[in-house]
Amino acid sequence: MLDLHRKKIWKENLGSYAFLIPWLVGFLGLTLYPMLYSLYLSFTKFNIRTPPEWIGLRNYLVMFVGTDSLPKDERFLNSVMVTVKFVFISVPLKLVFALAVAMLMNKKLKLIGLYRALYYIPTLLGGSVAIAVLWRRLFAGDGLLNMILGSVFGMQNLPAWISNPKYSLYTLILLAVWQFGSPMIIFLAGLQQIPREYYEASSVDGAGRVRQFFAITLPSLSPIIFFNFVMQMISAFQSFTQAFIVSGGSGGPLDSTMFYSLYLYIKGFGFSEMGYAAAMAWVLLIIIAGLTALSFKVSGNLVSYGSGE
């Protein structure tokens, strides 16, 4: 009897695992094994043509402190700074803008469906090479922005925004903020969940719009704000295409748009320093995991999940 029962459980499990096989094979072969292999490679010197050569912690040392024979990699530290600056300017701006537009899109208007669609278009198209190419022209010395500033506002001696290291990163930040559509739609769904009675009751008590925003809207949305923040932060850290196209693949001018991913690509596939690039990938993983954990910790005090739950 017991044997028969065991057999049945076995069969049940095998039948279920059959559905999981493609994913399992993919996870083991295309995710877990590559992850472990890249961890190993991060301790080697490897140019893909000759076998990896074990060098211990040297790649990591070069990134942060340098070794006796090798100086610290200033370009690496610069790429971290550029990326951190990009993430922590663009993500908050994007979320503020997304929330403001979401509140606008939460009004009852006849054409609201059309408006919501129009405001999503930058997000729909913004990740493409075509828009990055366009961006390069918009902010060039003789580009659209300067044409408008010159002819409409009569300004002169305008900088070439893209090729000036002072401004180039901000053109990419603007491009990222412009694509506010996804958090906007998530905020909109959140706004629609807030019970009307909250606002009605607070109006009776004499609360104004501003007061209502800070006392009702923001606290009710806090879990969503947090979710959007973490998701946007994770994806902003990995930005690649826009910086690659806008800078012509160089991260220039003067490494001012050298995003972390771009430097990793240049190191791994431009200079064939694959061990170093693998080490960079692991450092990125640790940075992202650390910041996500930190966000969760900080959010414990700021995010309210309502008293009912």
Partner: peptide
């Protein structure tokens, strides 16, 4: 794996 940055698998997959 949903949260994993693809970079950690890029190089071994390429090889």
């Amino acid at each position: 794996t949903l949260m994993l940055p693809s970079h950690v698998t890029t190089i071994p997959r390429y090889i």
